[in-house]
Amino acid sequence: MRDWLIGLGAAAALIVLSWGVLILLARTLPPGLARDLAAFLPDCATTVRRLRRDPRVPRRAKFAIVFAGLWVAGPIDLSPEFLPVIGPLDDIVVVALALRYAARRVPREVLLAAWPGEPRLIERLLGPRRLTPG
C-alpha cells in the first residue's frame, strides 16, 4: 500500500511539474509558435473557469467545458503527460473539441472575453464566424 501511495504522489508531482514548466515556458519564450503552444493549456484552464461561471453559457456548453477542464486536470490520459511532445496532445484535442462545441451555443464575444491568451489562437480554433440569417 505504501509503494502505491508513493507512486501516486510521484505521478501527481510530475503533473504539477509539467504544468509549471508549461507556465514558465509560456512566460519566458519569445513570441511565436512554441510560446503559443506552451501557453495553450494554461489559457484553456482559465477559459474553462471563466465560462463555467458565466450565466450566458447554456448548461450543455458548461457541461462540455467542465468535462474538458476535468480531462486536462485529471490523471487519466490517452498519452502520458511526461512524454515531451505528445503528452499534452490529447488534452489539447479534448479542449479544442469542447470549445468548438461551446462556440456553437455561446456568443462568440463571450468566448473571446473569457480567453486570456492571444486572440488569434482562439479565433483560429473557433473557425470562421457564421453569419446568422435575417
Rank of each mutant, 00 (worst) to 15 (best):
M1K: 10
M1I: 08
R2W: 11
D3F: 13
D3L: 15
D3A: 15
W4K: 14
L5E: 13
I6L: 11
G7M: 13
L8G: 14
L8C: 12
G9T: 06
A10E: 13
A10S: 11
A11F: 04
A13P: 05
L14W: 03
I15M: 11
V16S: 09
S18V: 02
S18Y: 02
W19F: 14
W19H: 11
V21I: 15
V21K: 03
V21G: 05
L22K: 03
L25H: 10
L25D: 13
T28E: 05
P30Y: 06
P30H: 06
L33V: 10
R35E: 14
R35K: 15
D36G: 11
D36W: 03
L37A: 12
A39W: 03
F40A: 00
L41P: 01
P42E: 04
C44D: 00
A45Q: 10
A45C: 10
T47M: 10
V48N: 04
V48M: 10
V48G: 05
R50P: 00
R50F: 04
L51A: 05
L51F: 04
R53E: 15
D54I: 07
R56G: 04
R56Y: 05
V57A: 02
P58D: 12
R59M: 09
R60Q: 13
A61R: 00
A61Y: 00
F63L: 15
I65C: 09
I65M: 08
I65R: 02
A68T: 01
A68C: 11
L70R: 12
G74N: 09
I76P: 00
D77G: 09
S79Y: 06
S79R: 04
S79H: 03
S79A: 10
P80R: 09
P80L: 12
E81Y: 13
F82L: 14
L83S: 04
L83W: 10
P84Q: 07
P84R: 07
V85T: 11
V85M: 07
I86S: 13
D90I: 01
D91A: 02
V93Y: 01
V95R: 00
A96H: 00
A96G: 13
A98G: 03
R100T: 09
A103Y: 03
R104F: 10
V106N: 00
R108G: 13
R108F: 08
V110G: 08
V110C: 12
L111I: 12
L112Y: 04
L112C: 04
A113M: 11
W115F: 11
W115S: 07
I122E: 01
E123T: 14
E123V: 11
E123K: 14
E123H: 11
R124M: 11
L126H: 05
L126D: 05
G127W: 06
R129V: 13
R129S: 13
T132C: 09
G134P: 05
G134I: 08
G134Q: 09
